[in-house]
Design a protein around this nucleic acid. Structure first.
Lengths: 371, 371
DNA sequence: CGGTTGTTCTGTACCGCTACAGTAACGCGG
DNA sequence: CCGCGTTACTGTAGCGGTACAGAACAACCG
């Protein structure tokens, strides 16, 4: 015996509309998805009936299953979305991706690398492909993606054979930045880097995937400094913000500031500092000011990225420009191409590797050393 | 005749695994999704077989269809994602949403309100519910969402009966800001607002949905100014950045700067300025500096939002704090509740309306007028 | 006028999974 | 040895679409 309780809202599906108009379900489907498959007159009639019945359109989930495409791509980011969103470089990248994606009809789903409870985004979210951005390969997330057989593009990661990647010329940019200081006459140069390692084997290993960028920049700085016979004063940033959630105390910043202060209070303090990012450069400038040092008279500071902050700061920051939007565009293009290729069964003979150029932008935060 | 061409990669599904182990497909499904439904021994055997066959787990799309849930929520934002991402208030909100969402297993899909080509995100993306954030209701997107019968929560929008909403006390905050200036002794006060309207009927109308916030703030400022018998010097911001895409010239900023400059060059220039946002306040300070005016000695400036920029600026900005993270949390909570309610068929008797408090934060950008 | 072509609509067979009802086997008290 | 509550597993019937191979019929052509 069927339960007497009537379904209050019987879901309106293709069939409902089809019955109403007196055509086959397929015709209704075509009316919505392939207008060229039926006469205009009938299509209008179907659409009218659909509107009347409150049928909005093909159910996205059902369509995804039947078509075999999800209509969305994922962006795999740091576990801490708070970090990702507060970083102007990351958001600029995302904006470019979103913008580039729009005309393709694909939408953008944010993936965290962390596995909260039973749910693993990289495994459980329907998508047609994914961008792996600024996140360690160590997180199982990348594994899930590849195991699912999803097209993937690496951004700012260590390139891996067989996987398309987009990078910027971090090393070259860093080299130019360091050379700039050398050319200005600086001999004691400090470096404020993010967590990184000098051991290439470690960097190459999957466990240190997201250190790639800092390592490359370090290499670039060393290129120029070594050539000039200089040895930098190092300062490492505290480890990456693991569980740095919105609203909590900002550990990394404090640790950073302290380290920089120590460096600037050395008897033989550096006359110039190379920084991993504009944000770090900003912090360095603040610390310098607190210590009564003028920038650039007493201390030259160079950033990296040329984020909006660099222009906003005073003094305006000398930095290395990378084309964040271009990176987003290139990554998106590479991914959509890979998705297309996967669809048609084509095996991309060689995974494309894109390396975008960087460019030194000299502004007001660098000058020859005093004395 | 079936095509002789063999399927190169036969897709591995539940059935494949089931056949291999010699159990029913249902058992394999349970092994993955409901471990308590079978013996541990068998489950392990199934999992092992799955691993061996390269079966990653239930296909998300198929699962979504069968279960009737998409496992994702959408956030409807301005057409220009570039704008959304470059705004610290918006990104802070998003970060909070993402963070709050994580434990629920829901992921986050970005929806643009614009309809590019045939694809309309709000209609075509599988999701269980959506947040409507900082986007005009005029865009058909909201219509699509509601027509689909999706649970929706409005954030910073004009509250609509029957729809849960989260707002902050914009008016109260603005009032406090204006009162602060009045109390300091200012009599000539300028206002730099975003596009807005004074016509309440227009604001209430759907066509002007995203002007709600600017209108509320305007009301708040007026509350205090009117009470003090003052009439503000108005300056409107240019219209919202319609097609302000990444990398393009930044029109709004320029227009803004020009307008502010005009205001500050008046013979009877204001001694204090109230701004719609911290970003605008920042621009005002820059213009003032260019004109040789000192802040706060010659000009007091008040922002809104208390975004990170406010603390970063020099002088540190007096502003009105709103709890962006709290807004994100509240919105997410409201949405998940609504989704839950929808699932169990419960009709939420009354849509909840949350209004978060605001608080004046006095820093260094305001002082009594000179003379 | 037979044959080819084109348009418009239909029928069937999935897509891969889950809900739910049901069956078989087992343990156990009486 | 029967009845009965558990536990472990299975079968069926969808979820709501789309792909693709026809079928019906008109138009066109030599």
């Amino acid at each position: 015996m069927t339960p007497p309780r009537l379904e209050v809202v019987t879901r309106v599906t293709l069939q409902t509309v089809a019955d109403r108009v007196g055509v086959s379900r397929m015709t209704v489907s075509n009316a919505f998805s392939r207008p060229d498959q039926l006469s205009t007159a009938l299509r209008e009639k179907v659409l009218a009936a659909a509107a009347e019945l409150g049928y909005v359109g093909p159910d996205p989930a059902a369509r995804a299953l039947a078509r075999g495409t999800a209509g969305a791509i994922g962006v795999l980011m740091t576990d801490s979305l708070a970090y990702a969103f507060s970083d102007e470089v990351a958001t600029g990248f995302l904006a470019a991706v979103a913008h580039e994606l729009a005309p393709t009809g694909l939408s953008l789903t944010l993936l965290t690398s962390g596995e909260r409870g039973e749910h693993v985004p990289a495994r459980d979210v329907p998508m047609d492909g994914a961008l792996v951005y600024s996140c360690g390969i160590d997180s199982g997330a990348v594994d899930w993606l590849t195991r699912r057989g999803l097209p993937v593009v690496f951004v700012d990661q260590v390139p891996v054979p067989g996987i398309p990647s987009v990078n910027v010329d971090d090393r070259g940019g860093a080299r130019a930045a360091a050379q700039h200081l050398v050319d200005l006459g600086h001999r004691r140069i400090g470096i404020v880097n993010r967590e990184h390692t000098d051991d290439p084997s470690l960097v190459a290993a999957t466990a240190a995937g997201d250190l790639h960028v800092s390592h490359q920049r370090m290499l670039g700085w060393s290129d120029a400094l070594d050539a000039a016979g200089l040895k930098p004063v190092l300062t490492q940033e505290s480890p990456r913000p693991a569980e740095w959630t919105a609203g909590k105390a900002e550990r990394p910043e404090d640790a950073d500031a302290r380290a920089v202060r120590e460096m600037l209070e050395l008897p033989d303090r550096p006359t110039a500092i190379l920084c991993f990012s504009d944000v770090m450069a900003y912090r360095v400038v603040r610390v310098a000011e607190e210590l009564g040092l003028r920038v650039p008279e007493d201390l030259s500071v160079v950033g990296f990225d040329d984020s909006p902050l660099a222009r906003r700061m005073r003094p305006a920051l000398t930095t290395v420009r990378q084309d964040v939007s271009g990176k987003g565009r290139a990554a998106t293009a590479a991914l959509t191409a890979a998705i297309e290729a996967a669809k048609t069964g084509h095996k991309p003979s060689r995974a494309k590797r894109v390396v975008l150029p960087t460019e030194l932008v000299v502004r007001d935060s660098t000058a020859p050393p005093a004395g």
